[in-house]
Amino acid sequence: MIIQAKNVVRTYHNGEIDVPVLKGVDINVEKGEFLMLTGKSGAGKSTLLYQLALLDTPNEGSILIEGEEWGKKSQEEKLKFRLSEFGYVFQDYALLPELTAVENVALPLLMAGIDKTEAYKRSLEVLDKVGIGDKGNNLESQLSGGEKQRVGVARAIVNEPKILFADEPTANLDSENSKIVMDLFKELNDSGQTIVLISHEPEFYGYGDRRIILEDGKIISNKPK
């Protein structure tokens, strides 16, 4: 088991009002699995992904990565861990506008101490792998939505992460580009990449090995494909 979340509770405070978003969620992710998180808007999908990806800290419960408790570790430790072990694909691409595609992809490698030439070489290879090897020198403004998201995916996988998280990666794409991106995730998973992906588009539910449905902060369904 690569991820184990036990009784995760997350409540946000909006002034004096407590807003419970996750109400005791238990979840396991196996190594090499493609897990789909689904559910209606406001069900708690993104909040659960933030807990699993160590971007947030649960009020209660624990997050174990390969058996080690990570939920309560410091922000600096989590940040270092995210750099080396996780990849994260954002819904709206989240590319840095002043960097070219290859520079965006190379950023985590440079931060990890990889030499610039090597980082660029590896980044171009990954861009090639996601099908936009010829767009390496383009700035974000010179890329289409689908291309931007493929750069986002390339950036998330360039460090060869143990787990790849994706938060509705096709939400801003047309159907053609959505399929290209989802096919890309499928290919990555086929080559052994563990993926946890949020989607609310039924046509892609079948891409996952397992689908969890969240409703009102609780898991209401947890079924293999």
Binding site: L55, E76, L79, K80, R82, L83, S84, F86, Y88, F90, A94, L96, P97, L107, P108, M111, A112, R155, A156, N159
Partner: peptide
């Protein structure tokens, strides 16, 4: 601010 958050999200530390 959001890009700074994203950079931290992908593992770029505060010092950097």
């Amino acid at each position: 601010r959001r890009y700074i958050g994203i950079m931290k999200g992908i593992g770029i530390n505060k010092l950097t």
